[in-house]
Amino acid sequence: MFLDFNSEKPIYLQLAEAIEDSILQDIFKEETQIPSTTEMSVSLKINPATAGKGMNLLVDEGVIYKRRGVGMFVSRGAKKMIIRKRKKDFYDTYILALLDEASKLDISKEEVITMIERGKKE
């Protein structure tokens, strides 16, 4: 799991996203235990309060849950939940940015579509 410390994004958000990525890639499977806040903060060398903030965000969203005295687990249905949330963000983060950059470069809508089709094939 890697964090980009030069990124504009706060570390706790990056950590939450990195955990989500791992769930999407089946590195952390549903109903299995994930590393503790301490393990995360030690291996990433970040303040435990920061790591806790990232984990709590996912607990609040229902992506992971705490088993008392045992640790953190990936919720059943977590993958679906993440995909649903990320699809919503996809339009704002990627499509709008793509169209914005395309207009700066004077790339037409048709050219963008052609490029997408080319990308799909490759």
Partner: peptide, 14 residues
Amino acid sequence: RDLFYKELIVVYSE
């Protein structure tokens, strides 16, 4: 240095 920072976090967390 890396080891020191990690042990520091361990000590603090425990």
